[in-house]
Structures are given as structure tokens and as C-alpha cells.
Design a protein around this nucleic acid. Structure first.
Length: 419
RNA sequence: GUGGGUGUAGCUCAGUUGGCAGAGCGCCAGGUUGUGGUCCUGGAUGUCGUGGGUUCAAGUCCCAUCACUCACCCCA
């Protein structure tokens, strides 16, 4: 084995890839049912878009971006997240000039240059959903409900919703100053002291016990909200209550991307170890303006598909089924193999999932293949059958076998499989 | 970027004080020349991560290096 996958890039192959596909589909279905439409955005963008959209003070921008110069000398960056690109595309194509909100979803890889560990990858797979052009707290709750449905439809029961609000341009500055004043009085290491000046809210989210103990009595945003932020937050919470979606108020929850404001949330799974966040999102009312657009509020979330696969496995729910077919062709001899190839394609055209044995496999080996394919029927075609214009249709569960004329096989099998 | 752990068959792993490189699962074949699953029998597959050192002899000891992995930090 001379080559291996790039560092920190997870790969999904059968049978585990079935869980990956199911995880993405669960969220896509939930989004489509709520009227969200698909958008395909670039895997790479102008570096400046992320610098301004995600925020110059974030670790993602300062330390973790895959940035390079293309052959034309432009600085481009592999997307570290989706929201900035979706907002850019919305503005560029004027989607916000139509009916609001613009409801969009997308999915695919995002890239962050970090040291890999369990659940943390350099190429991570995300499902992303955004509602742009609305301030209605009901849409905040809607996005949460969609994510919640995604987790539930996969059978996950241990997901926790952590909820907070970060205030807005009206109330956050005063709170930020009060928090900074408090944090400056603490005994903190160099890097953290720098963070106090650049992005003090993030210090609240520090997991180190010595930091945690010190910020225990720090002022909280929840006590400094302006009237409209408080009303917004209360409304989101009461709507979640109406839906029966349980949450935990987590006044210290802060997200690592600068654009977040007001509603902020994270989904967490207790069985995943250190990287337990399996989704997160919130409101980004200032993002459009940050990247040169008009005032345009928005709310959305991203879920980590890699971590959802891990959560599904941790709860013992993994599908672990390779692709299955209903019918499997077993040809004996070259003439039969040729006839079988057409028959198999006819079955597929008729909507019957079908596979067949290749490489001139013997009867025993081909039947073994039929068994492993998961098929309920094997169609055996040997020289004798071919001469008689029939094939043997074998019920692989009962072992029963009958001769069926070749030109009736497709309709007969369709009949058998639909009842 | 910082700190720990682990590298042996496709997978999971064993390998004693340094002494012929192994098991289970999987795979292939046969038992059954036109019938799968269960069973029985047989078989194939190794740069012991890589390079160097010590030694009569290294999977085992030493050094270096790479990869993987877990945690910090950060985040999905």
C-alpha cells in the first residue's frame, strides 16, 4: 500500500457508508418538508469572504484555513463552513429580492487545518440550512425543530439541545465591556488574556477547570439583554416548549464564529467523547453587512455528518447494510451469461433491483453470491434451460424452484415481489 | 501548535528471558461434475510502519523517522 488518504480525511465505504448516506438524507428530508430548497455553492471562495464573514478574530480564520494562491495569483480558501458562501451567493444572485425568507439547504465537505482527533477532521462533512431575510423568532425555532427531526428520524434519543442568546448590536457592546472588566481581574494565561481583548465571550466557553472556576460568577448576557432581544429569546423558548422540544439553558454557550447574534444553539451527544457537538447554529443578523450587503438578517445551522454517524453507531443504530437487490442472476456458461446480462437489464428497467454473477463463476460460487446479495429470488440460467427457453426461478427463502419461460420472467418476478 | 498512547495477514489481535511469524473472523477451493445459508476438509495472503544501530541471531532491545490514535486548544 503506497498511498494513503490525506491526513485527517475520513472515508466512508460499505457497509458503514450506508449510515453516512442515511444521516445526510434524514436532514435533507426534514428540510425539504419545511420548504427549504437546495443550493449548490463553491467548495472554495475568495479568501476575503471568509476573513470578513467568519471573522478576523476567530481561530478558524487565523489558524485553520486552507488558503492558497491559484494559478492566476488569486488567494482562495477551501470553505471552512457554509454560511458565508450561502449568504454571498444569495446576495450575488439577488435571491433576497424575491419573497422572504429565502430558505436554503446544502451539504458537502468543509475544510479546517487542525490536528485531527476523534470526531475532528480536516475535511468534515456538513449538512447546512439557512433562512435568510427574517427576524421572526418562529424561524429560529423552525430551524431547531428541523435539526431535531433529523436526529429523531435517525433514531437518536440522547441528543441534547443547548440554547443561549448572544444579544444584538444594541445590548451586546455594554455587556461585552462589563464582561471584559470582570475578566481582566482574573488570573489567566497569556493566550486567554489576549482573547479577553479580542473576543471576551469565548472565554466563558473555556473547558479548562481552572478557567471555569474563575468565570463562574462572571456577568451573563442573559441579564444584560435589551427589551427586544429578551422578547425574541422568550418567544423562541416558548415556541420550543409548544413543540415539545426539550432544551437546556446554557448561558455560557458561545459560538466560535463572529457572525452570531441573538439565538445561539448547539446539539450535543454524551457518548462522543471530547468532540461532542453534533450540530450548531444561530442567528447572524450582521453577516450580510459584514460582507458588503444590505441589512439582511438570517438564521441557520450546520450539523456534522461525521459526528452523527459516530452518534448513530454509539447508540447502536447503525444500518450496516450494503446495497441490497431483490433478484440475482446465476448464469452457467458463456451463452447463458450473455442472455442473463440482457435479462438483468430488463429487470432493472422494470424497477426491480437486480444483480448477477460475473467472471464465469461456477454454480456454487454464483449461488453464494446470490445469498450474500440479499436477493429473495435467484434466476438460474444454464445450457439446458436456455435450450428449453426457460430459466429456473428459485425462492431463496423457501428453497422452492420453478421453471419460467424466459419472456415471462420480468412480469412474473415483478408480480411475486409486489405481493 | 502542546502532551500521551499505538503500529504484526483484508479485519480484530496474540507473539514468553532476543531463537523457524501465529490465531479467530473474512476470502478461495473441495466435500456436492446444475444449487446458497449450516457443517467438515484443505488453501492463499506478511517490507512485523520505515531507516539505522547492538547481537551469532531482532517482531522483541536502542536511536531516529513516518503514520495512526486520544486529549488540550478549537469546532461540526
Amino acid at each position: 500500500m503506497s498511498f494513503q488518504a490525506p491526513k485527517g480525511v475520513p472515508e466512508y465505504f460499505p457497509p458503514r457508508s450506508a449510515t453516512f448516506v442515511a444521516a445526510r438524507a434524514a436532514f435533507a428530508d426534514a428540510a425539504v418538508r419545511a420548504g427549504y430548497a437546495y443550493i449548490e455553492v463553491p467548495v472554495f471562495e475568495d479568501t476575503e469572504l471568509f476573513a470578513r464573514g467568519v471573522g478576523e478574530s476567530t481561530d478558524v480564520v487565523t489558524k485553520e484555513m486552507y488558503t492558497f494562491a491559484d494559478r492566476g495569483g488569486r488567494s482562495v480558501t477551501l470553505r471552512p463552513e457554509f454560511t458565508a458562501g450561502v449568504m454571498r451567493s444569495t446576495l450575488e444572485h439577488g435571491l433576497h429580492n424575491g419573497r422572504l425568507p429565502v430558505k436554503l439547504w446544502t451539504m458537502g465537505p468543509a475544510f479546517r487545518y487542525e490536528r485531527p482527533q476523534a470526531g475532528r477532521y480536516r475535511q468534515l462533512q456538513q449538512f447546512d440550512l439557512e433562512a435568510i431575510g427574517t427576524e421572526d423568532p418562529a424561524v429560529d425555532a423552525e430551524t431547531i425543530a428541523i435539526a431535531w427531526q433529523g436526529y429523531r428520524s435517525l433514531g437518536l434519543t440522547q441528543v441534547r439541545l443547548l440554547l443561549n442568546t448572544l444579544g444584538c448590536a444594541q445590548c451586546r457592546p455594554a455587556y461585552r465591556a462589563a464582561l471584559q472588566e470582570f475578566l481582566r481581574g482574573l488570573d489567566l494565561d497569556e493566550a486567554t488574556r489576549r482573547r479577553v481583548e479580542i473576543n471576551p465571550l469565548r472565554v466563558l466557553d473555556d473547558k479548562r477547570p481552572e478557567v471555569r472556576a474563575q468565570v463562574e460568577h462572571a456577568p451573563l448576557i442573559i441579564d444584560h439583554l435589551c427589551a427586544s432581544c429578551k422578547a425574541h429569546h422568550d418567544r423562541v423558548r416558548s415556541l420550543l416548549e409548544d413543540l415539545g422540544v426539550p432544551w437546556e439553558d446554557t448561558p455560557r454557550l458561545v459560538r466560535g464564529l463572529d457572525y452570531y447574534s441573538r439565538t445561539t444553539y448547539e446539539f450535543d451527544h454524551p457518548l462522543l467523547g471530547a468532540q461532542s457537538g453534533i450540530g450548531g447554529g444561530g442567528r447572524y443578523d450582521g453577516l450580510s453587512e459584514d460582507i458588503g450587503g444590505p441589512p439582511l438578517p438570517g438564521i441557520g445551522f450546520a450539523v456534522g455528518v461525521d459526528r452523527i454517524v459516530m452518534a448513530v453507531e454509539a447508540e447502536g443504530l447503525a444500518a450496516r447494510e450494503p446495497a441490497r437487490v431483490a433478484v440475482f442472476g446465476v448464469p452457467l456458461g458463456d451463452d447463458a451469461a450473455r442472455r442473463m446480462f440482457t435479462l438483468v437489464n430488463e429487470l432493472r428497467s422494470a424497477g426491480v433491483a437486480t444483480d448477477m454473477a460475473f467472471d464465469g463463476k461456477g454454480l456454487k460460487g454464483a449461488m453464494k453470491g446470490a445469498d450474500r446479495s440479499g436477493a429473495t429470488y435467484a434466476v438460474i440460467l444454464g445450457e439446458r434451460d436456455l435450450a428449453a427457453g426457460t430459466a429456473q426461478v428459485k425462492d431463496l427463502v423457501s428453497g422452492e424452484q420453478t421453471a419460467v419461460p424466459l419472456d415471462e420472467i420480468v412480469t412474473k418476478l415483478k408480480e411475486k415481489l409486489t405481493k
